[in-house]
């Protein structure tokens, strides 16, 4: 059963990675990163139930990850809104000052 959970998490992580690389809207890129974080959380909780030393430590870890992810999403959205005000676009391809 453990490997089934790990497999679902792996699929989810790869879809999130593909979305983060391909999508153009910056909000969606941020959401894809949340998707990858969720896949990792699923792994942690699966190991907390089916791992060798099953304990609540994995769930505690997931709790802290969720808190950090919430902070990350809030700061990310704030940066995006400030960036949108400055540049008038949310297309990640248009944020290319460092390349020019």
């Amino acid at each position: 059963m453990l490997s089934s959970y790990l497999m679902v998490a792996a699929i989810l992580f790869c879809i999130g990675l593909y979305g983060a690389l391909v999508k153009k809207n910056a909000v969606i890129v941020l959401l894809c990163i949340e998707l990858m974080l969720n896949a990792v959380n699923l792994n942690l909780v699966a190991f907390s139930k089916y791992g060798v030393g099953a304990s609540l430590t994995g769930q505690m870890f997931t709790l802290f990850t969720i808190a950090i992810a919430a902070a990350e999403a809030a700061v990310g959205i704030a940066i995006l809104i400030a960036l949108f005000r400055a540049r008038g676009t949310v297309n990640v391809d248009d944020y290319d000052e460092m390349r020019r």
């Binding site: 949340e34 992810a69 959205i77 949108f84």
Partner: peptide, 12 residues
């Protein structure tokens, strides 16, 4: 987080 993202879309 879903609501936050929807607000982000609305404000952009």
């Amino acid at each position: 987080i879903s609501i936050l993202m929807i607000f982000g879309i609305m404000m952009t």
